[in-house]
Amino acid sequence: MNFPLSIESINLTKRFGDFTAVDSISFQVKKGEIFGFLGANGAGKTTAMRMLSGLSKPTSGSAVVAGYNLEFQSEKIKQNIGYMSQKFSLYEDLKVKENIRFYGGIYGLTDQQIKEKSEFMLHQLNLGGSANTMVRSLPLGWRQKLAFSVAMLHDPSVIFLDEPTGGVDPVTRREFWQLIYSAADRGTTVFVTTHYMDEAEYCDRVSIMVDGRIEALDTPVNLVNTYKVKTMADVFVKLARKATRGE
C-alpha cells in the first residue's frame, strides 16, 4: 500500500434528521502521522470517527481511508484499520492469551502468526509472565497498553484510538504514548482523540472540532502561535468556547 495519504476526507457530512452532527469536514492525514482529533463533548468527534472506520455511512461527502474508498470498500477498510477505545477494548473475563487469540482469529491470522506475534507483543510489554492472567486482574494502564498492541495485531495501516489513556496514571500514560510513537515510526498512521490537553501537544498535527466543523488544523506549535496563547489547552478552550451548540 504505497499511498502517500492515509486518510483523505472530502466534505464528509452526517445528519441525524435535521441535526447535522458532522458538517462537511475535509482534511488529510499523511502516512505515519500522529493526528490528534480534538473537540468538545458533542462536537461530532465520535460520529466522524465512526464514519472513517466504516461503522457508519456518511450522509454526503466521501473519504479514502488506508487507500480504500469509504463508499464502496468499507469492508476492505475494516481489514486495514485497528480500533481501540477506553470503553471497550479487551474481554475482561478472558485470559491475556485468549484475547490475543480471539482478535488474531477475527483478522484471519494463522496459528503460527498469532503465536509469534503474541510472544513478541508480551515481551515488548513486559507481560511475558502474564499470558495466563485474566485481563480483569491486570492494572488499568497495562490493560490499555495490551489493548493497543492487540489492535495492532494485524499490522493495520491506520489505527483509531478513542480516548485511549483515560484514567491511566501519568507514567503509564507516557509509556502508552511511547508505543504510539514507535507505531508511527514504523509507518502506521495514528488517529487519536483525547481529553488530556498535554497529549494534544504530542501529535504531529491537531484538528479541533467545534459544532460539527473543523475549526482549526495545524501543528501544535503553529496553533499556539496563531492563537497567541501558551499551550494547546488554551487554544482548545479559546476555540471550543465559541461553540453555540452546547448540547
Binding site: G39, A40, N41, A43, E163, G166, G167, H195, M197, A233, F236, V237, A240, R241, A243
Partner: peptide, 8 residues
C-alpha cells in the same frame, strides 16, 4: 470532570 471536555 472525568470524560468532560476541557472547556466544561
Amino acid at each position: 470532570t472525568t470524560g468532560v471536555d476541557a472547556v466544561s
